[in-house]
């Protein structure tokens, strides 16, 4: 039996890609984009509530990151820096378009009023309910002050530690803890009208 082994090229680090990008290597841009697009998109979507605006925010965020790349000194990771820029872009976009005001609490459908048990959410057949649940959570998020919403999204969606969230937002860990606590209280109070939480 012949065993063919192919040497797997090492995955370049963010720092290596950034250095290549600074030298004009466009492939590095694509690699960085592929590496972080989904994360940036999910954060932007949670902050804005729809795909089109979230994609615009991702594009704007990456574009701003490119523009300001020469000023990135590597004191934080590229990931946390990018999330800061993208979440700034998302919130700016939300303010400009007034998207949050467009969310109507009347949009809650009868389906959503049925109690959704999180224990059944792993059921693949519950696709429609998941969409409804997403809209419910989006509406609950819209009730939070912007600072709490951003803090919670960075922690819950980007799965950043308290320390990393503090670093992204330039606040203390104590402030992160406080914002997360009050954000959860408000989210639970809102969601409890429709789901078991």
């Amino acid at each position: 039996m012949v065993v063919i082994t192919a040497a797997c090229p090492p995955v370049p680090s963010d720092e290596q890609l950034l250095a290549r990008l600074a030298r004009g290597d466009r492939d590095s841009l694509e690699e960085l984009f592929r590496r972080y697009r989904a994360l940036a998109y999910r954060v932007a979507h949670r902050l804005l509530g729809n795909e089109a605006d979230a994609l615009d925010a991702v594009q704007e965020g990456f574009a701003k990151a490119l523009t300001h790349l020469p000023g990135f000194e590597g004191r934080s990771t590229f990931k946390t820096w990018l999330l800061r820029v993208v979440s700034n872009a998302a919130l700016d976009l939300g303010r400009r378009r007034g998207r949050r005001e467009a969310v109507s609490l009347d949009a809650v459908t009868g389906t959503e009023r049925e109690r959704i048990d999180p224990r059944t959410l792993d059921d693949p057949a519950a696709g429609l309910e998941r969409a409804d649940l997403r809209r419910l959570i989006d509406q609950a998020l819209a009730t939070l002050p912007e600072a709490q919403r951003r803090t919670f999204v960075l922690h819950a969606e980007a799965e950043l530690s308290y320390r990393a969230v503090a670093e992204v937002l330039g606040i203390s860990i104590g402030t992160v803890m406080s914002r997360l606590y009050y954000a959860r209280q408000k989210l639970r109070a809102y969601l409890a009208q429709w789901v078991k939480v």
Binding site: H45, Q59, R188
Partner: peptide, 30 residues
């Protein structure tokens, strides 16, 4: 349970075509 609800409501990813449009804009910007 809140964390469970949050994960269950994760937004679906855009299509590859949508990503390609964004990337094309970024490359043009760069």
């Amino acid at each position: 349970r809140l964390a469970q609800l949050w994960q269950a409501s994760s937004p679906p990813e855009p299509s590859e075509a949508a990503w390609n449009d964004v990337l094309a804009q970024l490359e043009q910007h760069a």
